[in-house]
C-alpha cells in the first residue's frame, strides 16, 4: 500500500464535492502524490419505473451527472495546484445498466463500500477519501452508510472522512 496513492470515492453529491475540495486543499502544490477519482455507477432500480423507456431516461440523467461531476472534480483539483498527470479517473459501470452491455468489471450495486475496498486492495491505494452525509442512526440503519462501512472494513490504508 502506498499512502501517497490516494483514492477519492465520489458520487455526484455535495459530500463528495467536500471530499474533493479537502483533498485539493491538503495536497495542492505537493509532489509525489497520485490521486484516483473513483465513481461507481449506481442507477435507480428498474422496478421503480413503469416502462423501460422512462427508466433509461432516468439512468442517462444519472450517468450524465456522474460524468459531469468527475470532470468538475478534476478541474477543482487542478485549480488547487495538482497537476493533470497526477490525477486519474475510474468510472465503474453498473452491471445492471440498461444503456449498454456492461463490461467485464462492473458494479453489482449491492454493497458499494465492499467494491471500493476491492479497488483499494487490488490497486494498492494507501489512502481513501470519502465524504460523509452525516445521517442519524435510524437512517444509517435503514439506508446504510458507505463511509461507515469503509471505516469498519478498511485494513492497511488510511481513511479520510470529510464531514
Amino acid at each position: 500500500m502506498d499512502p501517497k496513492k490516494i483514492l477519492i470515492a465520489v458520487d455526484a453529491s455535495e459530500n463528495s464535492l467536500r471530499a474533493v475540495e479537502y483533498t485539493g486543499d491538503m495536497l495542492g502544490g505537493s509532489e509525489g502524490f497520485h490521486i484516483g477519482l473513483l465513481t461507481i455507477e449506481r442507477f435507480p432500480d428498474r422496478d421503480l419505473f413503469e416502462t423501460e423507456e422512462v427508466w433509461k431516461t432516468e439512468c442517462k440523467k444519472h450517468q450524465a451527472a456522474y460524468l459531469d461531476f468527475m470532470a468538475k472534480a478534476r478541474k477543482i483539483l487542478c485549480d488547487k495546484g495538482i497537476s493533470e498527470k497526477q490525477i486519474f479517473s475510474r468510472y465503474i459501470e453498473s452491471c445492471k445498466s440498461p444503456l449498454k452491455s456492461p463490461p467485464l468489471i462492473c458494479s453489482m450495486g449491492t454493497n458499494i463500500a465492499h467494491e471500493i475496498m476491492g479497488i483499494i486492495e487490488s490497486e494498492g491505494f494507501g489512502t481513501v477519501v470519502i465524504g460523509r452525509r452525516g445521517v442519524s442512526k435510524e437512517v444509517e440503519f435503514l439506508f446504510g452508510s458507505v463511509s461507515t462501512k469503509i471505516v469498519h472494513y478498511s485494513k492497511g490504508c488510511a481513511v479520510w472522512i470529510v464531514n
Binding site: 449506481r42 435507480p44 432500480d45 422496478d47 421503480l48 450495486g109 449491492t110 454493497n111 458499494i112 463500500a113 440503519f141 435503514l142 439506508f143 446504510g144 452508510s145 458507505v146 462501512k149
Partner: peptide, 11 residues
C-alpha cells in the same frame, strides 16, 4: 419496491 442506497436488503 423501494430505492435504498447502500443497504438494499436492510428493510
Amino acid at each position: 419496491s423501494f430505492d435504498f442506497y447502500e443497504n438494499p436488503f436492510a428493510l
